[in-house]
Write a protein that binds this DNA or RNA. Structure first.
Lengths: 340, 340
DNA sequence: CTGTTAGCGCTTTCAG
DNA sequence: CTGAAAGCGCTAACAG
C-alpha cells in the first residue's frame, strides 16, 4: 500500500511497447496513431493507473490544462454560482481551476505576475474584473484566451456570455403593471454596471409604454447591496405619495425593501409589492419569498468554459456577439394586486 | 509593448553575473548566499521583472507553490468565506490556489487523480470532505500536508481549526433564558456533523442547568437547510403548547422559522423569539434581523493556511489539538423578552 | 503512422 | 559560499 512512485509516460511506453511520442499522441487526442497501438497504450494507462503530470505538460507544451477563474471578490451566491459552473465544466473537460483574487488595486500587476508564473490555458472573467480594460489588453497581448461573464462594456476579440437584462426587466415591470400597480418605484443597482442601466431602461420604457409616469422620487440607487437598498427604500417609502410596488434591481436590495416595509408597518404584498432580480438563495429565504428573475448563473459559467475551451483548441470561428442566456420569471409571494 | 518572452532564471543569472544555482538559492530563501551576490540577484529580479515559473519549480522540486482547496460543494456564505480566507492567506505567502470539487461519490479516486496530476504543496479540507477518512489516509500516505476546517471526527496527524460550538451554543441558550423564555425549542442541524451535536448538547445542558425542561416536541431536525428548517419549524410550532423561542442551529433554518412564524401570523420577536448561528449575510437580510453567533470563517481559513504553510516548511512541532477560534454573540432584532 | 531527440525552467546533488 | 551538470515528465519538431 506504499505510494509507489507515480508511473511516468516512459513506464507507459515500456508497458505498451511503443515510444513515448506515441503515448504522448494518445494523450493528446490519439490522432495519427494506429488502432492497435492506441489500444495498447490505453491498456497500459489502465494497468498502471497512469495520470499525466500537469506541470510537465505545461512546461513542455504551451497548454497548461489549467484555467484561471478571476474574481474581484467571490462573495455571494451570484459569484459562487459562477464558480460552481466553472468547476463543473472544467472538471468535465479534465481541466483544473485556479482561482485568483484580483484586488481592486494593482490588478494589472497581479495579472502579469500570474501569467508569468503559471501557464494558464485560458481565463474566465467575472464581473467586475471582466471590464478591466488594461487587464483585457494584457490578456490579448499575451494571447491568453479569455471569456467574460456579464461584462458591462464591449471589448472586441474576447467573447462573452450574458443575459438579456432588458427583456427580463421588461417582463418584471409588466408583471407589476398587470397586477394593477400604477405607482411603481425602482431601485437601481450600481450604475457603473451596464446591467443596472439596462434594467432601469427597461423599467422606464415599460412604464412609458403603459402610459405610466416614472416619478423621480420613486427611484433611488442601492448599489446592489442590502445596506444600499435599505437607504434607497427608506427614501422612496418616506415620500408622502408613495408607490404601491417597488422593483429592486437585485434580491439583496429587494430584501432590504421588505425590511424597511416591515419597520414602517407596511404589509408585503398587501400594502406594497416588492420584486427582485437574480433569484439567489436569499430570494426564497425571505418572508414573503421574492418574486424575481432567475439568472442561470451556473449555466452561464459552464457556457463560458465551453467557449473558452473552443478558443483554446482553436476550433470555431470567433463569436463576437455575446452569447445570450435565457432568464426565467419566478413568481413568489412578494408581489400581489395593487391595493385599492 | 510586445510580450517579450518571459525572462528565465538563466537571464537573471546572466544579468546578475552569477550562476543559476545561486539565483535558485535566492529564490528559495537566500541561505548560503553572500550578501553582495544576493543583492545583485535581487536587483536583476527587479530589472527583468522576473517571476519564477510555477510549473518548472514544481517539476524540478517537490513543492508546487500550489495549495488545493477541497470542497464537496462550495455553496453558501460559509464555504465562500473559507475560500476568501484561503485565497487571502495564500496570496500573502505567494501561493496559488487550486479549487477542486470532490463529488459525493468517487471522491477518493478524484483525489488520487488530482494528486498524481498536480503537485500540491498541501491541501485545505472543508466540511464535509474533511471527514472523509480514506481520503485523509490517502493524503497521509502520500505525505501531503493538510489542515482540516471544522471537522466532525478526530484524525491523528492532521491538524484542524474549529470553533467552540458548545460554548457558543451555551451562550445563545442562556441569552434566551435570560430574556425570560421558559419554553424553548431547538432545531438540530445535520446530526452527522459533530458541530450539530455539540450545539444540541450545549442547549440541553444549559436548559437543565436552568431547571428547564427540554420537551422532545420542541425539538426537530432541519439538516442545516432552509427547507428542512421550514418543516422543523412547522412541526414545532403546530404543537398545542408551543415554545416562545426557538434556537435554530444555523441562520438558514432560523430564517425558515421566521418564514413559518410569518405564515402562522406570529410576530417575531413579540410572540416568538428566533435565534440562529453563523452570522451569514442572510442573518442581516431577513426581517427582523437574526440574533446569532458570528463564526470567524474567513479567519479560520486563514489560520488553516498558516498552519498548513508551517507544515509544508517543516517548522513547528505538530499540533495535535484543534486550534480553537473565538465566536461572537451578535444580538439583533429577532430575539426579545418572552411574552407574558 | 512512428520513433529520436532536444529542450521547457527550475532544483538539487556533488564537487570545489 | 558557489557553480556545473543531471534530471523532473512531457511535447514538439524532425526524420523516417
Amino acid at each position: 500500500m506504499a505510494p509507489k512512485s507515480k508511473p511516468t509516460i516512459i513506464d507507459v511506453a515500456r508497458v505498451a511497447g511503443v515510444s513515448v511520442t506515441t503515448v504522448s499522441r494518445v494523450l493528446n487526442g490519439g490522432k495519427y496513431v494506429s488502432p492497435d497501438k492506441l489500444a495498447a497504450v490505453q491498456e497500459a494507462f489502465d494497468k498502471l493507473d497512469y495520470q499525466p503530470n500537469l506541470h510537465a505538460r505545461s512546461l513542455a507544451g504551451e497548454r497548461a490544462y489549467l484555467i484561471g477563474l478571476l474574481f474581484d471578490d467571490p462573495r455571494g451566491d451570484y459569484l459562487s454560482g459562477m464558480q460552481r459552473g466553472t468547476l463543473l465544466a472544467g472538471q468535465k473537460a479534465d481541466y483544473h481551476v485556479l482561482v485568483e483574487l484580483l484586488g481592486r488595486t494593482g490588478t494589472l500587476a497581479q495579472m502579469k505576475r500570474l501569467i508569468s508564473r503559471v501557464r494558464l490555458s485560458g481565463v474566465i472573467l467575472t464581473p467586475p474584473v471582466c471590464d478591466h480594460t488594461s487587464l483585457l489588453n494584457t490578456l490579448v497581448r499575451h494571447h491568453i484566451p479569455a471569456v467574460r461573464i456579464s461584462p458591462s462594456s464591449d471589448f472586441p476579440g474576447i467573447p462573452s456570455v450574458k443575459i438579456d437584462d432588458y427583456a427580463a426587466a421588461t417582463e418584471m415591470t409588466r408583471h407589476l403593471i398587470t397586477l394593477g400597480h400604477r405607482k411603481i418605484g425602482f431601485i437601481i443597482g450600481d450604475p457603473e454596471h451596464a446591467d443596472a442601466r439596462e434594467r432601469q431602461r427597461a423599467f422606464n420604457d415599460a412604464l412609458a409604454k403603459a402610459g405610466l409616469e416614472a416619478k423621480p422620487e420613486w427611484v433611488a440607487e442601492g448599489g446592489y447591496q442590502f445596506s444600499g437598498g435599505l437607504t434607497a427604500a427608506r427614501k422612496i417609502l418616506s415620500q408622502p405619495d408613495r408607490p404601491t410596488a417597488i422593483f429592486a434591481s437585485n434580491d439583496d436590495m429587494a430584501a432590504a425593501v421588505i425590511a424597511v416595509a416591515d419597520e414602517m408597518g407596511l404589509r408585503v404584498p398587501a400594502d406594497l409589492s416588492v420584486s427582485g432580480f437574480d433569484d439567489t438563495s436569499l430570494a426564497s429565504a425571505v418572508s414573503p419569498a421574492l418574486t424575481t428573475i432567475r439568472q442561470p448563473v451556473e449555466q452561464m459559467a459552464m457556457k463560458a468554459v465551453e467557449i473558452l475551451l473552443e478558443r483554446i483548441s482553436g476550433e470555431k470561428p470567433e463569436t463576437e456577439t455575446p452569447v445570450m442566456m435565457g432568464t426565467k420569471f419566478v413568481r413568489r409571494g412578494s408581489t400581489g394586486p395593487a391595493p385599492q
